[in-house]
Simulated assay, not measured.
Amino acid sequence: MLKNLLNVAGVQQLSKSEQNAVNGGKKCEYLHEPMSPFEQEAGLSLCMVRCRPSFLGIGTGSWSDWEHNVPCP
């Protein structure tokens, strides 16, 4: 199967270091923070977020610490 894939135009095999650098993505959780009256008037929407590594949408590592004042998605 690998030979079939490598025969496709423009395809090249990654080196071991390039394979290790591939990021499978991350899975994140968002929480809305309570907003001050000023933020509500300005129409700002801020969240807290924490993420962890993911492979095929399945979380594979530890959660990071919560980051505050992140724009909500």
Rank of each mutant, 00 (worst) to 15 (best):
M1F: 13
M1H: 14
L2G: 14
K3D: 12
K3P: 06
K3Y: 11
L5V: 09
L6I: 07
N7Q: 14
G10K: 05
Q12V: 01
L14I: 01
L14D: 12
S15L: 04
S17C: 02
S17W: 11
E18H: 10
Q19W: 06
Q19V: 03
N20G: 10
V22E: 02
V22T: 02
G25P: 02
G25Y: 02
K26D: 02
K27D: 00
C28V: 02
E29G: 03
Y30W: 10
H32W: 08
H32P: 07
H32M: 11
E33K: 06
P34G: 14
P34K: 15
M35D: 07
S36N: 11
E39T: 12
E39S: 15
A42C: 14
A42E: 06
G43V: 06
L44K: 11
S45Y: 12
L46K: 15
C47T: 02
C47F: 01
M48L: 02
M48W: 02
R50P: 04
R50H: 01
S54H: 10
S54P: 08
F55Y: 13
L56W: 15
T60C: 07
G61V: 03
G61H: 13
G61C: 03
S62R: 13
W63F: 10
E67P: 00
H68C: 00
N69Y: 12
N69S: 13
V70L: 00
C72E: 00
